[in-house]
Design a protein around this nucleic acid. Structure first.
Lengths: 245, 245
DNA sequence: TTAAAATGTCTATTGATATAGACAACCATA
DNA sequence: TATGGTTGTCTATATCAATAGACATTTTAA
């Protein structure tokens, strides 16, 4: 890998933020694994072609995220450098999928509502617009660190009580099982990226300007009948998707 | 869909940039299809809870991208509202994959080099570190609009001359065919997101702060022997990926 | 023709961003 | 214990980002 290059002078995104993103990426890629520390501020300033104070702003932001910790006289230590891998296959399951990469997996139910299907939701679930659906707002954590924020819709008739089941089981797979659906498969997944909204920023403990990986997914039962449509927002600096064909 | 909500006051990313992103997204989602115009500046200012001048900065950025065009006295017209869909399957091909969504597809060879495989490239291509590989830097366009910037590696021994073949055929699939590989399959794809580098910004004609969807892909021949490893960077506001299982 | 509605332009003010320089405080080690 | 390297803090200055208000210009429609 080549070293970090100079940042471009841009409008709209603060320099310190661009530099924070670059350093976060470098840490994630293991660029500083030898020392376990970020290079000195003065060196980073030269590398990026900016003032040392600008580098300090970037490092302060990373310290706020818990990624680095500055120690006066010694340097800036790297505290955390993970990126969870999230396989997307016909058998995609959140908890099992990244279960071996974290000690503790949790799924929190933030909100539950019964509502009428919009045209889009109806299309995905194979219902008629206006049919009753259950919407779950969930937050998934790995080792107490928020990983994704998802909005899921289920046919209300077939999956009444899925909210309560999810609240106790903390897993869609187990909630389905409790409601008499022992198995399901991932039919389609659409992946996009966007800036985080204010609400997602709060839930995912993101800093401003953060990027989301957005997966719109549809699951079906083994007969191909849609059972769930979900829009999951992942903190892009904490995960990657892997598609194995 | 609910209407646009207020933006959050953030640090590091300019308000006008956040608003530009939101409006671009709304246009892409067809929120203004009825009129073919963006709402008046004063109305947007109220919706986002900002000054009209801030909205004007956002619209100016979108005009610069060619997405809208302001006409004094009339309003701000929407010029373009596309997001190419890019299916990722075992038979993923760039040109064929989005060929029906654009009139003209082109693949430009920016650079070609023979080099020694790094540990990572060697691992992906099933070679030994230091084995000769050919690296192609390519830019793919749909209707003259840049869509992705890719770096690809090929085993040098097997695919000598792939640069020349790509330059004339403007397609990996056709270049492979010319070199005696009539068919290949997508083995794995890793998807991440990040901010655009300065170089990618220039090649993809992106505005500062833009987001990239990054796909690291490995293709094999029908016997499962790796033939290509590539890192493609897509302008996130112009594409989405679809994974069909 | 007139009025309303929309974008375009200008001035002014405040706070955030970025640069620059100097020096203090702290740590490791020769 | 002295020194060099590192982070922490302070002052100062210039530019960008955002708000605020006023008014001009252009188009549409009453």
């Amino acid at each position: 890998m080549s070293g970090l290059k100079q940042v471009q002078r841009q409008t709209g995104v603060a320099l310190w933020r661009q530099i924070a993103d670059r350093i976060r990426e470098a840490i994630s890629n293991g660029a500083y694994d030898e020392t376990g520390m970020v290079p000195p501020e003065t060196m980073l300033a030269v590398q990026f072609g900016v003032n040392r104070h600008t580098v300090r702003s970037a490092l302060a932001a990373l310290a706020q995220e818990g990624i680095v910790r500055a120690v006066q006289g010694r340097g800036t230590l790297i505290e955390r450098k993970e990126r969870l891998n999230f396989p997307i296959t016909r058998r995609t399951r959140f908890t099992a999928g990244i279960g071996d990469q974290a000690r503790e997996m949790r799924g929190l139910l933030l909100d539950e509502a019964k509502e009428e299907a919009s045209a889009e939701i109806a299309r995905w679930l194979g219902l008629k617009q206006g049919d009753q659906v259950i919407r779950l707002e969930t937050l998934r954590q790995a080792d107490k660190r928020p990983v994704s924020r998802a909005t899921s819709w289920f046919p209300a008739k077939r999956f009444a009580g899925i909210g309560a089941a999810y609240r106790t089981e903390e897993s869609i797979t187990k909630a389905f099982a409790e409601l008499g659906l022992p198995d399901y498969v991932r039919a389609t997944t659409e992946v996009t990226a966007a800036h985080a909204s204010a609400a997602d920023m709060a839930d995912l403990e993101l800093t401003p300007g953060a990027i989301l990986l957005i997966a719109k997914a549809m699951n079906t039962d083994l007969e191909g009948v849609p059972v769930q449509y979900s829009i999951s927002r992942f903190a892009a600096d904490r995960v990657q998707f892997t598609i194995e064909n």
